[in-house]
Nucleic acid binder design. Sequence first.
RNA 1: GGGGAGAUUCCCGAGUGGCCAAAGGGGGCAGACUGUAAAUCUGUUGGCAAAGCCUUCGCAGGUUCGAAUCCUGCUCUCCCCA
Length: 417
Amino acid sequence: MSSSAGAGTDTVAALARRGLVKQTTGAEALGRLLGEREVTFYLGIDPTGPSLHAGHLVGLLAMAHLQRAGHRPVLLIGGATARVGDPSDKDDMRPLLPVETVSRNAALMQRQVGRFIDLERTVIVDNAAWLADLGYLDFLRDIGRHFSVNRMLSFEAYRRRLQTGLSFLEFNYLLLQAYDYLVLHREHGCRLQIGGDDQWANILAGVDLIRRVEQAEAHALTWPLVTTADGKKMGKTAAGALFLDPERVSPYQFYQYWINVPDADVAALLALLTLLPDEEVAELGRLRDQEIMAAKERLAMELTGMVHGPEEAAGARETSRALFGGRGDRHGERDSMPGATLPAAELEPGIPVADLFARTSLCASKSDARRLIQQGGARINDTRLTRVEETIGLGDVRGGELVLRAGKKRFFRFLVQ
RNA sequence: GGGGAGAUUCCCGAGUGGCCAAAGGGGGCAGACUGUAAAUCUGUUGGCAAAGCCUUCGCAGGUUCGAAUCCUGCUCUCCCCA
């Protein structure tokens, strides 16, 4: 047990200060346990998508905190449960995923998780190992008998779904997750499961199952579901989820997401999603008005650094400063701005601006490009375009490139060759 | 299995024969104001060779000069009963 992390009885309190605690199976009992010994705990992630996204960050940070406090993480990849779908917090049924997709996703996720916790000291398991070949009759007899349908139906998660429809398949998710916990308890001595508060019922089901079957005590800890101050789901961008995979969301875009977070969320996010010391979080959280940009920059740096590495983070910061800060040189933008090459031959006769914009990710269609220009949102090399009919030729190229811009924040670079 | 309701543009939701590329709201995008924030105001939000043309109201046919709207079949969803 490390003594530096303020471990001991106030591990729970430390997590709570970070906003990482919503419910536990008893702060005192859990705190005592965490203070007394190295505790094996687990977090389950279902590999339903091709990449982890911002919504997974809280769990990864919670894991990181606990590992630093001297506890032993087990990462459960829900290779089997991903194919069922958790009905909690969902209005609709998930599509069933093919096996190959799930295992590919699982492999990608492990890599991303390694940024947050020390995989050398982490046990990684896939519940397909014990769920895939589970006999239905055995499961019903050994596990199913411990569950009361009456009680399950009273859970909030199910009650809501009863309005819209809930398949038997989804209804069983809770049993499977409870069984996971039991297996991990038996095989790895797992005594704590952590998760988002939407997992509370599922986790408790496991706690109960372990008590009944093993007569042993197991614990649960959930964190609040994160929403932004304006009530939206965190980590959702207009384009979709904020993925951790740089192929899907570039480090620059990732950085930009965090620097654009609403003022009202900054303090909470610093606590929740960084490993900065409490005092520093408090200090940054006090900044207001224009000064708050410093706190946002710190938040973006910390997160981008953790997810993509310090160099990428620094690059994203430089680009952002160059683009949004004072004028000056714009070398940093080169690596992170979306772009394409453009043969000089095409520019020779001149290209109508609307066509040029329509070819980029800035505009969905030519009509879209026309609208952009008509509304004064289109620029090339910092010059606002006013007429749709205008054409761009070789004479407009600056330093071998054309920088197109839509609105304040969206850029695209053509390298002219 | 029986009875009922429904499927409209990114989402919700109006529209029951022409005035409908389709009200209104949400979301998105852009402009103003700012701090790359929020709030607010304004514009915009199917595509194109653009005062015009083409594609879109679950799918496939049909009636009609004309269909999101009427008819037939199909698919799917929800509700009530079993």
